[in-house]
Design a protein around this nucleic acid. Sequence first.
DNA 1: GCAATATTGTTATGATATAACACTCATACC
DNA 2: GGTATGAGTGTTATATCATAACAATATTGC
Lengths: 166, 166
Amino acid sequence: MDHQESHTHSSHNHNDCIETALATAETLCLEQGQRLTKVRRRALELIWQSHRPLGAYQLLAKLAEEGFNSAPPTVYRALDFLLAAGLVHKVESMNAYLGCAHADKPHKGYFLICDSCHNVMEFDYQDVHTSLLEKAARHGFELRAETIELTGLCAKCKMASTGANA
Amino acid sequence: MDHQESHTHSSHNHNDCIETALATAETLCLEQGQRLTKVRRRALELIWQSHRPLGAYQLLAKLAEEGFNSAPPTVYRALDFLLAAGLVHKVESMNAYLGCAHADKPHKGYFLICDSCHNVMEFDYQDVHTSLLEKAARHGFELRAETIELTGLCAKCKMASTGANA
DNA sequence: GCAATATTGTTATGATATAACACTCATACC
DNA sequence: GGTATGAGTGTTATATCATAACAATATTGC
């Protein structure tokens, strides 16, 4: 049923996440006859290494440091590829890009975004999707994509702020 | 209960919408001791005159034609004011701005955006909000704002495309 | 009127994203 | 293995979206 996932908890070993994501990406690309080229692979890895959504130009700077071409099309092409493959999501309200934790299952990117620490948690509630789909249909609207971005205070920051007051 | 509204149907008299919106805006600003200055009022009106979300620079161009200052801060200040007052919404996935049809009641901007004609319908389903609020709380997350933007094909465009095939 | 504050003018720049065309490399086919 | 094809990348230029910083002006409360 409901599924939720965060790759922002400092408690976990994020390297595992990155490795899993990269492995999944390679498998998916192989299956679909897509080429996970050097720059695409490295872009994906760099996006994953950040615990927060990464801006295109931040990513470009990192790629440039490593000898990749430093012109914007480089990064936007890589992002376009990764977005189309479902390997990353774009967080519209931040103009930033985030590794997708379950690219292997088609899903919508629903996000909880902390205003304070800027960490982002992805969640994927089937019931919300079903409900939105049904409501769209009620308007004769054929739903293709959903942008669901919830902002506020994450548990940690909330505790930190109340703790400071107490 | 559930409320939905469109100001994109060509069937209606959009002038009524604009007048109502402007009247509501004046009332709200008066109540809250806010000043609906010339440029703010005209910006709101121009946003409403467009049936689709209007880009900041599109709006700026229209304002400039009418003798207002043509530098970007002019339009962004007006937009900031209108956004803060809840009189317009920003459609994040389009970087564009839309008149809010029910600024008088606090609400979230939920949008159905047609990929084909780019019209946008605002809807506001209390049950979706409640559901998201509860799910956020489940993660210890204190929800402050929601960006819900659904894209796809509106009823008209869907009919037009199937009609073309038939 | 006058001080305090809000609003607007103005210049400059930062941040995000794409167009257009040349070049290179991988792959598939012979 | 050669070579045509198309995918991918390099490069230059520019479009689009947004804000910083400070000066000038208008509004409001006294």
